[in-house]
Nucleic acid binder design. Structure first.
Lengths: 367, 367
DNA sequence: AGTACGATTGAATCTGACA
DNA sequence: CTGTCAGATTCAATCGTAC
């Protein structure tokens, strides 16, 4: 993506801006960020205090920033910041919003109303959730992230192969199993108490950024908090713009970012999608003599055959076409990937054409 | 609960009523059912045909009942049936609604607007979801159920101990891992094709009814379909009222219910489901910082080396792959167990990766 | 009878570059 | 805007058939 970078010179890059989220976003140029990650107030409607079975008090979220008089006010607030976020987002960009059942249905509906196009909802399954102390409901063991493109026709980024690699070579699913942010990772004040009530784990942002952004992309976090998004952006060599109202959080987040060492440029690279690899026309392999005209190809089960022409087309009797077209035609399929359909013989072994393409790619990449 | 039973004499008990859902609900007395389970149209908005990589066609949901002109029409429809459902529901009753990201945010917001009080959202994690064939999104591997009381002050039923027993004596969480409805359980027509495109698994309704109703309670299902709710109600000795528009489905559902034998009253709460085997992808260790990107691994005799990438692949020169694939490649072996092949250094000692996996497993035993 | 392998299938908002 | 075409893309289960 990074179509957004041309406008990025006006962006205050790699900073946490202290200010109200909507007002501050108004100062940012339109279409200037590649991705938004937002962890807005949850509108938790806790009635009174909550105690554990041993009578200790649960430190719930009761900060002022999480208080809204009613659903309508929460909706107005949500519509305001999501509208600004959409303006600032590049047309091919995506947005992530995390929430719980208290607020995620308001968020999701308003996202759709504003024209965002939902791509997935992701369930963050907590390995160590807080138990339900009263035994009146199911243990609330997950939070929901909505991942949406700016619009229905956005050509958004999804690093499919990197996600697949991250999950032992099977497709990454919409349910993610990750622990809460605890221990050393959790920022604490001078009394050893948690600095922020809802600090998100780095592993969550690591996966979000790895899935939907690339190196040097700009990520906007309008509710920056302790700066997990910013820190992970720096670690993964992305850029960030954070917005945060509370000066203590701004300070803590910038210190955290400063302590973060970016990964080496060559180790931050992930498994590439084939769509992004340089395209090699089959004909160029014939030109380069990687495969010679006259070679007879067949499919894996040697049911159909074809001969390579000097112009890179294949010939079977009166039929002629690209490796894809002829493969589709001979199998009566609507389409065909000729690279994996056609095989050639080398040292008595049947190998797919794709092997030749990979070998050529590696040779040219070394230069 | 069963506070609803006084009014149940006017209810057509244990029948599937043929008719439109809103109109038919109007004929039911107010406050007369203890629980509602609803599986409304999802408004999928599929745009074209979809083929698997092997060129077979995916049989998508293209039924007329799932077509709406726009979100506004879907919202009107949703508000209408949820309003009637709320009227028919006893003041201490609860409602379950299942959906996907296409519709669940509309549903959740309207539930809240109408005064329902959300108790949990439940994630049905599918053990065998359909993959994402184009590699453009995460595998859509879950659906969401919202569980809500009629109002904030409802004294609703939740069978906490039964749920705990069902879950090996630990609190039941909000994420449920259950297979799709397939095989013999799936109703089929005379051609062996699925009778209904979206039949829900019995295990799901089993858990829903066991959690939130008691023997002899009345459950209303306004989108009855193949009658999974009705069948499970009968099996668990509850009563049901179904509503279904299509006469074929009404007939099939009633036959299905007739074939269902109620459990003996004393065995109703003994069913137990299997647990999921724990699996830790190597990539998740990178995400969680158990091992950091850039770390150099080697084999036991330090003959080959590789560097850890952020997506959990290993890199050696131009070669990249999972811990298993790269190990196999570098040793020219047909396969390789990367967990025992690769070693890292800790306190001057060379330890296999498997040590990290074991340590992580112990810390976060998956449910 | 038991095992091996192939065919089938599931609520899916499922491509993108270039002329 | 439309049209064309290269070419990227699947996991878990169940069921039927062959051996």
């Amino acid at each position: 993506m990074s179509g957004a970078k041309s406008a990025s010179m006006e962006l205050p890059l790699d900073q946490i801006l202290r200010g109200e989220c909507v007002e501050t976003m108004r100062s940012l140029p339109s279409g200037s960020v590649d991705c938004v990650f937002a962890d807005p107030p949850y509108n938790l409607q806790l009635r009174g205090e909550l105690r554990r079975p041993d009578d200790t008090l649960v430190d719930g979220v009761d900060d002022d920033w999480d208080k809204f008089s009613d659903l309508e006010e929460y909706d107005r607030f949500t519509r305001a910041w999501l509208s600004e976020a959409r303006r600032v987002l590049h047309k091919d960009g995506t947005i992530w919003v995390i929430g719980s059942y208290h607020n995620i249905y308001r968020i999701g509906a308003i996202l759709q109303d504003l024209g965002f196009w939902i791509l997935n909802d992701i369930v963050w399954r907590k390995s160590n959730p807080m138990p339900n102390f009263r035994g009146r409901r199911f243990t609330n063991a997950h939070e929901t992230l909505i991942w949406a493109a700016r619009g229905q026709d956005s050509r958004y980024r999804f690093n499919y192969q990197a996600m697949k690699a991250l999950n032992d070579d099977v497709q990454m699913r919409s349910d993610w199993y990750l622990p809460l942010c605890t221990g050393n990772e959790r920022l604490r004040n001078e009394h050893g108490l948690k600095l922020h009530p809802t600090q998100k784990p780095e592993s969550l942002l690591h996966r979000v950024l790895l899935a939907s952004t690339t190196v040097n992309d700009v990520i906007l976090d309008p509710f920056s908090g302790t700066g997990t998004t910013a820190a992970m952006a720096r670690r993964l060599r992305r850029h960030f713009v954070g917005i945060e109202r509370h000066p203590d959080y701004v300070e803590a987040a910038m210190a955290r970012v400063a302590a973060e060492t970016p990964l080496e440029a060559d180790t931050v690279q992930t498994t590439q999608d084939k769509r992004e690899a340089p395209r090699i026309p089959f004909g160029s392999l014939v030109e380069q003599g990687v495969i010679t005209a006259g070679t007879v190809l067949c499919d894996k089960k040697r049911r159909v055959h074809a001969t390579v022409s000097p112009d890179g087309t294949l010939v079977n009797g009166a039929k002629r076409g690209s490796i894809h077209k002829l493969g589709a035609q001979l199998t009566n399929a609507p389409s065909c990937n000729g690279w994996t359909f056609w095989y050639f013989e080398r040292a008595g072994e049947l190998l797919p054409l794709d092997v030749l393409r990979q070998e050529t790619l590696q040779k040219t990449a070394q230069v």
